[in-house]
Design a binder for these strands. Structure first.
Lengths: 144, 144
DNA sequence: CTTACTGCAAAGGATTTGCAGACTA
DNA sequence: TAGTCTGCAAATCCTTTGCAGTAAG
């Protein structure tokens, strides 16, 4: 599932212990994670101290700015989620009941042309989220 | 542009002065607005006092709960935006430079079937945002 | 009259920032 | 060594909540 075989820390970003750890977590992760998620894993893995949540945010900011990480706010969006850009971008279906994420087989826009109101817009990226109910929640739940 | 000719305050929601004002603002608006936007217009229109931001959030919560308003977090998402559901749902292209919103002609998924990883997901809704550059920002900006 | 809604102020959570010390190149 | 990065704590911003008073049906 992980496609991080040849994934190395970006040369253009200054290496520090903290950033390397954050990079490792992101590169091992296949789903979007929040800054707090990352922080919790850090203090889990690397001992309880020696990490600040602000460092996580700052590192994520750098990674995002350089295009290595994409930030998004899934579902109502109380907090931001981050994921490493592995080259291929992903979309998710999000279960409204259990909040599980299910990746789409492929991007529905690969071969689709999208038109804006006046066609005077150059599209460089997009974000798509599907909402609904996963198998488990559909079976047990008749209150849909 | 406004399609609120026959738009009236929902019968199932208790009428109050405040909710009517909030409803009015939402129904006159053609683009998503934040709770703070609404609050500012309220104190602009209706005098400076007599309105609390919490009332705005609570009213929006009710409207959303009953399905009259949809809430979303556009673009990185520092705050939530709300818009009245006029029957037809809308998607936007968002300029990365000036943050202008441009509505799509039509929903790209109207006739498209989307497949999830295992097809065990019932899709009830979706959210799509396009990013790029509008005409103005493209012309002046060569730093794209 | 009863219940629900409001304003106020305080709390909450996520994210950012200032600053002095620590680390990287 | 110079400049950047870090931890800490405080600050911000958006949003929610508790409570006592007020308004709606």
């Amino acid at each position: 599932m992980k496609n991080c075989e040849e994934l190395t820390f970006p040369k253009e970003i200054k290496r520090t212990k903290q950033r390397e750890e954050i990079f490792r977590i992101l590169s091992e992760e296949t789903e979007p994670v929040s800054a707090v998620d990352i922080y919790n894993r850090l203090i889990q893995t690397c001992g309880n101290s020696n990490f600040a949540i602000s460092t996580v945010y700052r590192a994520l900011g750098i990674f995002e700015e350089k295009g290595y990480v994409s930030k998004s706010t899934l579902m109502g969006g109380d907090m931001a989620y981050y994921e490493w850009n592995f080259g291929t971008h992903k979309h998710y279906a999000i279960c409204l009941k259990c909040h599980k994420l299910i990746a789409l087989k492929k991007c529905p826009f690969e071969h689709t042309k999208i038109e804006t109101e006046n066609d005077d817009f150059v599209i460089t990226g997009h974000k798509l989220e599907l909402y609904g109910y996963c198998k488990e929640c559909r079976v047990e739940g008749e209150d849909i």
